[in-house]
């Protein structure tokens, strides 16, 4: 029962910054919110493999190919940690995948944009992973134990992702004129969607209230976005690329960069399924899943036979 007594006790635990563990009592809304957030995070890791995977076979050097493969493998691993964390809340992996396929669960909209040139692989690592890290570092202090521990593990690998992307961009920016153009073009296309990754402004953020009280979320969308902008603008300067925002300027008094208005119309369109690749990313995931059905059935049948043999033996 969700008596006021339980709720109060729960809040006291949260306020003391003690982690909530799977067997602890928790309000139904807390569980629901976590399932939504962690599964969305897990699906993002997995769907995010697609734009980068698009370039594995075309990576321009053996070294670049090895780094990209290792990075994508990490992302798949992150997906696994997060599915496991989510399963501790009493939902199965199959149900989670099903929610993804029916559209009930979302993934980060950023992966609905296409990786059209090799420079996009640089931009994704630098900006998309760069933005993800800012969010994930903050989430290391989230109140749910398994989620927090998954974030700590993931953050250890993420800084390599951001660095490899920045390295690709740096090489291109210092390369031939065509390469530099490729790098600037990728930055132009990925900059704004990366800022959108942090979600709506705090003033229009529908889920933030309770998430903050329950310390699932520790810092607001705008705070995290600002942190990302401030570190990334300087990195762009170092490699001689220009952030595609005419209103971007350093505010001496506040010690932050001011930025132009984000196109929330585009954000809403992509979230609502009208991004360039929403349908294709999902269709790819569904078709891989369906093509693998006979393999999973075989594995289950084999496991069942082995179990029987053990019982008979």
């Amino acid at each position: 029962m969700e008596s006021t007594n339980n709720l109060e006790k729960f809040q006291t635990i949260i306020d003391a910054d003690t982690k909530i563990e799977p067997k602890d009592w928790m309000p139904e809304d807390y569980r629901k919110h976590l399932i939504r957030q962690i599964s969305q995070h897990a699906h993002s890791e997995v769907i995010g493999m697609q734009p980068e995977g698009n370039w594995i076979t075309r990576a321009p050097s053996l070294r670049a190919k090895l780094i990209l493969l290792a990075k994508i493998q990490d992302e798949a691993g992150h997906g696994l940690y997060l599915y496991s964390a989510c399963e501790t809340l009493g939902i199965s992996r199959e149900e989670l995948i099903d929610q993804l396929h029916t559209g009930k669960a979302k993934y980060s909209s950023i992966f609905n944009y296409p990786a059209v040139t090799w420079a996009d692989i640089g931009a994704i690592g630098w900006l998309v992973d760069g933005a993800a890290i800012v969010n994930q570092i903050s989430l290391q202090r989230t109140s749910y134990g398994p989620y927090s521990r998954a974030m700590i593990r993931i953050c250890k690998e993420e800084s390599f992702h951001q660095r490899q992307g920045y390295e690709i961009m740096g090489k291109l920016a210092l390369g031939t004129p065509e390469q530099k153009e490729m790098a600037q073009d990728a930055l132009n296309r990925w900059w704004w969607p990366s800022l959108m990754m942090f979600g709506p402004h705090d003033s229009d953020s529908p889920h933030s209230g309770k998430a903050m009280t329950w310390r699932i979320k520790r810092e607001s969308n705008d705070v995290l976005r600002q942190r990302f902008i401030d570190k990334t603008v300087q990195q762009a300067e170092v490699i001689g690329l220009k952030i595609p925002d005419d209103k971007l300027k350093w505010n001496e008094a506040k010690g932050v960069y001011e930025h132009g208005e984000i196109n929330w119309e585009e954000f809403n369109q992509v979230i609502n399924g009208n991004g360039p690749l929403n349908k294709i990313r999902l269709a790819n995931h569904i078709s891989a899943h369906e093509n693998g059905a006979w393999v999973r059935e075989a594995a289950n049948a084999y496991a069942a036979k082995q179990k029987k043999e053990v019982l008979v033996a």
Partner: peptide, 25 residues
């Protein structure tokens, strides 16, 4: 490496990528 995002299970996807990494290495 062409199996990336196409495996029957996420675990198998990882294993395929892992072998690809060994081989390309």
């Amino acid at each position: 490496s062409e199996w990336s995002s196409k495996g029957p299970l996420l675990e198998e996807d990882i294993a395929m990528t892992n072998m690809a990494l060994d081989l390309i290495g």
